[in-house]
C-alpha cells in the first residue's frame, strides 16, 4: 500500500491505516471500538471525496504516471476478446513501445493499437518506457491500412511520455513517421476512436491519435511538452513543473474546455488502478456509443466529419483584428 502513495493522497492512506489498526486491536482484545471505527470510516468517506474531487493539475500528472496505472494491454484484456498481437513494421524491426493487433469488441472485428509502458524496470527497458521509435509508428500505420482494407474500426490507446529522442530515431525519420501517420489517419475510411489512458506526450502521442473521436480518462494528460520540460524551457527551472502543469492546461477537463477532445471518461475514485474492471466498463460504454454513432455514416460522411473536426480546432484562438500589416520599423 505504502509503496505507490502519491503525496496528495497521504491523508487518506494514513486514515485508512489507522482504521485498520483499530480494527485489529478491536479483534484481538475485549475493548469495543466499533463506535470509534464507524466514526473514522465516515470521516474517511468525506476525506476521500474531498481529496479526489479536488485534484490539482499536478496531482493528475502524478496519477497519469502512477506505477500501477493500467496500461494498453491491461485494457485490451478487459475490453476485447480474441486479441492477437501482430508484430513488426516490415522495414526495420518490431518496436515494443507500441502494441497492436486484431480482436473482437462485442463480437465485432476491430484493430487495436496502443503505446505500451512496462510495469517494472525489466519490461520498461524492453518497451523503451513506452517511447516509440519510427518503426513503432510504421507498425501502427501498417496495421491501420490493414484495418481499412478489411473494414474494421480502429481503436487506439495513448499512453506515452513522447516519441523517443534518440540518434537512431532521427536517422530513421522520427518526424516523417509521425507526420505520415497524421496525414494517413486523416484519410482512413474506417472509424477511428482514440483514448488517452495515461500521459499524452506531444507528437509521440499525436502519432496514433488522429481520428473521429478523442477521449481522455479523467486523470490523464495531453500536452505539447512535459511540465518539467515546459518549466525548463520557459523559466529555466525544471523544479517549477507544478506551476507549469497548471499554466499549460494539460488535464482532461482543460482539454474539454479548449474544445480539443470529445469527452472525459470518469475515473473510479482514487484512480483507474483502484478498480480496473469498473474502469474498463466505463471505457467500454464510450467505445460502444461511439462505434454505434460512427457506423451510421457513409465513408464520405465519416471523412467530411473528421476533416471538419480538425478544421475547427483552435479556431477560437486567433482574432481578426488588424486590417493591414504592421509597419516595419
Amino acid at each position: 500500500m505504502k509503496k505507490n502513495v502519491l503525496p496528495f493522497e497521504k491523508p487518506v492512506v494514513e486514515l485508512k491505516e489507522k482504521i485498520a489498526e483499530l480494527k485489529k486491536i478491536s479483534g484481538e482484545s475485549e475493548v469495543d471500538l466499533s463506535e470509534e471505527i464507524d466514526r473514522l470510516e465516515e470521516r474517511l468517506e468525506h476525506l476521500e471525496r474531498e481529496v479526489y474531487e479536488n485534484m490539482a493539475p499536478w496531482d493528475r500528472v502524478q496519477m497519469a504516471r502512477h506505477a500501477e496505472r493500467p496500461t494498453t494491454l491491461d485494457y485490451i484484456e478487459q475490453l476485447f476478446t480474441d486479441f492477437l498481437e501482430m508484430h513488426g513494421d516490415r522495414y526495420h524491426s518490431d518496436d515494443e513501445a507500441i502494441v497492436g493487433g486484431i480482436a473482437k469488441f462485442n463480437g465485432q472485428p476491430v484493430t487495436v493499437i496502443g503505446h505500451q509502458r512496462g510495469k517494472d524496470t525489466k519490461e520498461n527497458i524492453r518497451r523503451n518506457f513506452g517511447m516509440p521509435h519510427p518503426e513503432g509508428y510504421r507498425k501502427a500505420l501498417r496495421l491501420m491500412y490493414q484495418a481499412e482494407k478489411f473494414d474494421r474500426p480502429i481503436i487506439t490507446f495513448i499512453d506515452t511520455k513522447g516519441a523517443y529522442p534518440g540518434k537512431a530515431a532521427e536517422e530513421r525519420g522520427q518526424s516523417e513517421a509521425i507526420a505520415k501517420n497524421l496525414r494517413e489517419m486523416a484519410g482512413l475510411t474506417v472509424p477511428i476512436i482514440c483514448i488517452v489512458i495515461g500521459e499524452g506526450g506531444s507528437g509521440g502521442a499525436l502519432g496514433i491519435s488522429v481520428g473521429d473521436k478523442l477521449f481522455m480518462l479523467e486523470n490523464s494528460t495531453y500536452s505539447v511538452i512535459s511540465p518539467e520540460g515546459a518549466a525548463a524551457l520557459l523559466w529555466k527551472d525544471s523544479n517549477l513543473a507544478k506551476k507549469a502543469a497548471e499554466s499549460m492546461k494539460i488535464t482532461s477537463y482543460d482539454l474539454e474546455e479548449l474544445g480539443v477532445i470529445d469527452g472525459v471518461i470518469e475515473e473510479v475514485q482514487g484512480g483507474a488502478h483502484r478498480d480496473i474492471d469498473n474502469q474498463a466498463s466505463k471505457i467500454k460504454e464510450v467505445i460502444e456509443s461511439s462505434l454505434h454513432e460512427l457506423s451510421q455514416l457513409s465513408e464520405q460522411e465519416l471523412l467530411d466529419q473528421r476533416w471538419r473536426k480538425y478544421e475547427k480546432i483552435g479556431s477560437t484562438t486567433f482574432v481578426l483584428e488588424r486590417t493591414e500589416t504592421p509597419v516595419n520599423e
Binding site: R183, V210, I225, A230
Partner: peptide, 26 residues
C-alpha cells in the same frame, strides 16, 4: 517547433495541417 504559450492547441496544429494536406493530396 510548437509554440509553448499555446500549449496543446499548438500541438493540434500538427494534425490540423496534416489533415488539410490529406484532402489536398487526394
Amino acid at each position: 517547433g510548437a509554440r509553448m504559450q499555446e500549449g496543446v492547441l499548438s500541438l493540434m496544429q500538427m494534425s490540423k495541417t496534416s489533415v488539410a494536406l490529406e484532402r489536398f493530396s487526394r
